[in-house]
Design a protein around this nucleic acid. Structure first.
Lengths: 270, 270
DNA sequence: CAGTGGTCTAGACCACTGG
DNA sequence: CAGTGGTCTAGACCACTGC
């Protein structure tokens, strides 16, 4: 803990320690100064994770939160600013601050970076989703490691094909821990009209917050090429994604094979 | 222009218009409200572009800048914050705010996202750079379009191979507008020990600020496979990059072919 | 120790949204 | 019109760096 709040003129201040979620009460060493706004950020983050505010709904106003946490509006503001930068919250001037959701149109392309070779995103229409398979399985050592499970733990394995303008373009294998997604089956997957992450969010309360991808160039094998309706020896983009929910917890492993004859993977280097 | 600064208690304020670089003097329509800190940001940006402060050097302190621009420190602060987020400036507590430079170790991997398959970055040592070719040429229609030149304009064309642990891994073709890089030749390229962007920066005052990449899976042709010392029909990552300097001006076109048998392209989706 | 960026506050006013 | 986020100010104090 620290004394960041000790400069407050009056005694109205809350004990700083009471705000620090899990802060060591003068621990043995290296208290690691953490500013007030970071503590507020952590508290808001916890409320988000606990589901205190629903996806797409507004959170309390800055003024309200400032009163609740007994800090100034500016401090709440800085906390919210960072959460908005991390795409956990969305600010809308004049309306309020909202819990980010995968249902919004704008968020669609935050995780899928495949763009048509020419023309804009709208020119080809939305993807057609076809679920090939959805079964329960046991996690291999590799899958378990990446999802932070134990080898042999129950997982759901989904295979699907995404097509654009009736051209099969993406073949995906998806692994999910069985526990958090209990009740998910091929029927529900086929019934849901929107993006898969929107389904995870609305039906399982599981919000994917960030992801990491490793990309390689590969040759599709026979079965893969068949599903993508290409000839043999076609070079494909292999995209392995680990998606994380709150607290940097890995919640999905996804292996995609992308045809890049009519599309490309786009990346911005800032 | 707007009246964002009109709430200042005394007349000490500068005329807001005098800060707005090129702001329309009550233009016909849509004055497009621009906050003070954005105007300050633009001014600092211009100073950066004009080379008022050298790469790696400190810019004036927040207090100084606040005095110069006749605004509060907090306003300067917000401007600098955004420039730091965009990697144009680097803040160092207790020391000052510095002009970002490609010479720093940390910045190396901001544009090169190829990572060794296992082990950390240090385990393989730095890349060995081998310049294959550097010649003057005329811009093709495609190259001209991407560099915002005219077809036939003079360009420099560079080809090089990057190797890790003596394994050729990246084959790159680079196009530069001849004007800004006058005097660049194969000798200077070979003589320079650091990253190419550091050379551009220190010897031509040209700082690459952001870039955009399009990635595809391809099969290398005979010549390409020969330079990369692979067999034929090896799938390779095709990475086409446009790098921009200040003002979103495209300054480099780069086509890379990456072997991904020992490395992968890593991407964070935030 | 002085100088830098970093945090926090309190209060004012502006821009935007919707009833 | 009230309520929201967005901007701006002024001043205090904290944390870090280097002389």
């Amino acid at each position: 803990m620290n004394t960041a709040a000790s400069s407050r003129p009056s005694g109205t201040g809350v004990q700083a320690a009471s705000k620090a979620a899990g802060a060591p009460p003068s621990a043995s060493r290296a208290p690691a100064f953490s500013p007030l706004y970071q503590q507020i950020k952590a508290l808001i983050s916890q409320s988000l994770q606990a589901g205190e505010w629903k996806s797409g709904n507004a959170i309390p106003s800055e003024t309200e939160l400032a009163a609740r946490f007994q800090v100034s509006q500016g401090t709440v503001r800085k906390a919210i600013d960072e959460l908005a930068t991390e795409n956990l919250l969305i600010r809308r001037q004049g309306k309020g601050t909202f819990v980010a959701t995968h249902t919004e149109q704008q968020v669609q392309y935050r995780f899928l970076r495949l763009f048509p070779e020419q023309g804009d995103l709208g020119s080809q229409g939305p993807a057609q989703r076809q679920i090939v398979d959805c079964r329960r399985a046991r996690a291999s050592a590799q899958v378990a490691r990446k999802l932070q499970l134990r080898t042999g733990d129950a997982v759901l394995q989904i295979q699907r094909v995404l097509s654009y303008a009736d051209v099969p373009t993406i073949l995906e294998d998806i692994w999910l821990p069985a526990g958090p997604f209990k009740g998910l089956d091929i029927g529900r997957l086929q019934a849901y009209p929107g993006p898969m992450y929107a389904l995870f969010e609305s039906e399982f309360g599981m919000r994917m917050v960030r992801a990491q991808e490793e990309i390689r160039a590969v040759l599709g094998d026979e079965e893969e090429c068949k599903l993508l309706q290409t000839g043999p020896y076609v070079p494909l983009l292999s995209v392995e994604r680990i998606a994380f929910t709150y607290n940097d917890m890995p919640m999905e492993l996804r292996h995609g094979l992308y045809r890049t004859d009519r599309h490309h993977y786009r990346n911005e280097l800032g």
